[in-house]
Design a protein around this nucleic acid. Structure first.
Lengths: 140, 140
DNA sequence: GCTAACATTAACGTCAAGGTCAATCCCAGA
DNA sequence: TCTGGGATTGACCTTGACGTTAATGTTAGC
């Protein structure tokens, strides 16, 4: 966890995001890098991890940036609850319910994905079959 | 496979899409319902299935409509290859490669999703723990 | 034959997620 | 010190995926 700082161009190269996108995420309060006196944005490894999480949520889950913001905040809230050990039962139950919903949502996506995957596997198998039969015909 | 026809409002209700969205998909050539003489759109069960596939691809995979169009066309091409049994080896190999790529892409998404899911499960477990400890404290 | 509830196209509006451009500022190296 | 390559903000532009409205046609029941 070296406390090195990255400038936006480096972050762009490391993450594959454009500088514009990175700044945009900041506009939406998804990230909040430090600033140098010159007002340059300074990103830590922690910021980078957060950005990677954003990318992952976006690409795999197809979440909108607004949804991602919610997820990140939910996560953060829970982290503070866990670290302080402070939680009124009602609030805690609330968060647990939200997390269960997220999990359910993810499970649904997974099963849809698996179903789609099987369809393609099926197609592939049938094409394989066709190719094999064609091969036989040629060697007859 | 009854050859009943549905009008757009029925399709809307059955699929949960708005009529506007359904027409928009037609603009993009994702679907091509028949027309009555009055120019009303007439949807078959087959059209409905296609629409359901579009929805599924959109929601689970987060595909753009352009990507969905590609996937549907790929599927259709392969179907005709399979039904006619006609396929030059090169073309066949080509399609098989494309399908493998789709499968790979899907697998990647699935594992990302599962990873995210586990994170949430983890949080949930820790919250459960916290709650149990709090419970004990109250009954002490 | 009228009317209400459907349908059509065409055109413009909107929102998210950035792209692009301009004007200005900062910094590192010759 | 000057110069080129990055950084900043602000403003407007674009694309995808629809929403909305207007003007008009169709159909089913009374």
């Amino acid at each position: 966890m070296s406390d090195k700082f990255y400038k936006i161009e480096e972050v762009s190269k490391m993450t594959g995001l454009t500088k514009r996108a990175i700044r945009y995420y900041e506009d939406l309060n998804l990230i909040a890098p430090q600033r140098a006196e010159s007002a340059y944005r300074l990103y830590t490894d922690e910021d980078l991890e957060k950005i990677q999480r954003i990318i992952s949520l976006k690409e795999s889950l197809g979440f909108s940036l607004a949804e991602i913001k919610n997820a990140l905040e939910l996560d953060k809230d829970v982290q503070t609850i866990l670290s302080t050990g402070t939680a009124e039962a009602a609030i805690l139950g609330n968060y647990m319910e939200m997390i269960r919903e997220q999990i359910k949502l993810i499970d649904e996506k997974v099963s849809k994905l698996l179903a789609t995957g099987e369809q393609f596997e099926n197609l592939l198998a049938r094409l394989n079959n066709l190719r094999d039969r064609a091969g036989k015909e040629n060697t007859r």
